[in-house]
């Protein structure tokens, strides 16, 4: 296996909202579970599943998005663990 660089921006291919708190082993962020968006982002050669840091009013199939990170949870020693996500890409709208 070898590394393969993927583009950091793409378009929302499908989306949904996680509207209820998942069972463990899900680890909620500091402050507890809040509903979050999940979807597939079309990066051209592959669709990648990720959290979507996009407000409900904006979210739609085809929305241009860009890679970002969001807090996932705090580890036992207090370290904040981040995970990858996608946010609206204003430049992608042009």
């Amino acid at each position: 296996m070898s590394g393969h660089v993927l583009p950091v921006s793409g378009r929302v291919w499908s989306w949904t909202l996680q509207a209820f708190p998942p069972k463990p082993p899900y680890r909620p962020p500091a402050g507890g579970y809040r509903p979050y968006h999940v979807g597939y982002v079309d990066l051209g050669e592959v669709l990648v599943e990720a959290q979507l840091a996009v407000p409900r009013a904006e979210i739609r199939i085809g929305l241009p998005v860009r890679l970002t990170t969001v807090p996932a949870y705090h580890d036992e020693d207090g370290t904040e663990v981040l995970t990858f996500a996608f946010r609206p890409d204003r430049e992608g709208e042009r």
Binding site: W13, S14, W15, T16, Q18, P22, P25, Y26, R27, Y36, V38, G39, Y40, E49, A50, Q51, I61, A72, Y73, T83
Partner: peptide, 23 residues
Amino acid sequence: WYAETGMMLTTQFFALKTQRYLH
């Protein structure tokens, strides 16, 4: 990490597949 970050739910899969299909 996949379950810990809240992406391992069958309900999400059915919703994502349906959302795309309707579209």
